[in-house]
Design a protein around this nucleic acid. Sequence first.
DNA 1: TTCACTTATTGTATATTTTACAATATATTA
DNA 2: TAATATATTGTAAAATATACAATAAGTGAA
Lengths: 232, 232
Amino acid sequence: MAYKIEFGKFFSYSFSLDCVIFGYEEGQIKVLLIKRAIEPYLGKWAIIGDLVYPDEDLPNAASRILADLTTIDNVILHQGSTFGKPDRHPQGRVITTAYFALVRIDEINAQAESWAEEVCWMPVNKVKDLAFDHKDILDSTYEDLKRKLRYEPVCFDLLPEKFTLNEMQQLYEYAYNAELDKANFRKKIRPIPMIHLKEKQTNVKHRPANLYSFDSERYENLVEEDSYTFKM
Amino acid sequence: MAYKIEFGKFFSYSFSLDCVIFGYEEGQIKVLLIKRAIEPYLGKWAIIGDLVYPDEDLPNAASRILADLTTIDNVILHQGSTFGKPDRHPQGRVITTAYFALVRIDEINAQAESWAEEVCWMPVNKVKDLAFDHKDILDSTYEDLKRKLRYEPVCFDLLPEKFTLNEMQQLYEYAYNAELDKANFRKKIRPIPMIHLKEKQTNVKHRPANLYSFDSERYENLVEEDSYTFKM
DNA sequence: TTCACTTATTGTATATTTTACAATATATTA
DNA sequence: TAATATATTGTAAAATATACAATAAGTGAA
């Protein structure tokens, strides 16, 4: 048979995952970067990523890589795009797939481990150049994030557990890069299942706003019975 | 340095692309399949896919693979999800990324070539089992297609060059699995830039409908000047 | 040629959602 | 207690969506 696989030629690639971790702090969306302590790109800032082990499933590998390099655990990772320019990695053919997560920066304790020398939260629109094609990966994945914010209730993964409606509005204003009307924003989000807490904002020099939290249980039920679809 | 890449261990994977080609015919969305003339899964139906060459960029590889196996040329391919279960390929670790296209079945001349023994257009919801994890890939990519139909004017890639508004409506009814009101459908699509042709349907036993075609040039301009966003 | 028939196409009235902007409420601080 | 600052709610107009009816224009048989 003429179409047998030439093993030497084809089974010589490697495959990596890049974990783009987004957080929200000080009114801006930030991304978690690591400083590389190894070649190539030694000393350069990069997205958290590494090679997948031969027997690893992709979702597990993404979690493992994230934990290995930053000790971050227990975050939900979503698959993004795949990048495979032949020369994107100087040491060989490495195709990579982006995975991304939305986290609460203050609840996460990211510590540099393994070959990561340092970690830092960098505002997404301040990021200049990164190792490899990581800037392209970041840009593409940030678009994925914004799309997801529009069609799935993932904003609550970025906001604190208890948040004010204004904080929620500001997050969308930042992501959409557009001002929104307060009154109309509240009308729009009314159908979203949220718990109106009995607590108020503290340490503000004016009337404190009420605190809310996302009612994920009720949300799941509504989705189940097909009586609600999130849309912003 | 302890973190050097172990080449033997990591640079031993292969990478493939699977081209999920969708068409629309006889009121249903169909997918182009090939019958495998090689092991593994010899004689089984499969999605059009093959290994990426060492120096190929992914979009080029997708076009090349599609042409190699079916002689199909000149279609726009969109990236879909990536699949990497460790045991998905019996001959080694092969990670694969889906690419998908929307085509006019009657304008495409798909011919089995290389190790493809036969090609066939199969209605998507009739597809039972396929080689590898191709059924999963098909299901996932079909969801991608439906999402794209909603937010981008790709329905015109499936419809004939000249189509009736009813044909367009029926496509959406099929994809959404829901009945739509004729009058309201027309109101909804009014802002979509289409050319009202001077031609009418032929060979029908009743009043023939008018024919339309998508005005892609005007669409590009509208998008450029930010004065229109497609939404169905 | 006419008329019944079938589908295409348009219209209308109502309900719902979005938008713009104003008014009121409530906590803080001086 | 009043001034201030932001939270929260309300209202009216505009824009969209929905349901359903009416009219138009071909085909094909009498």
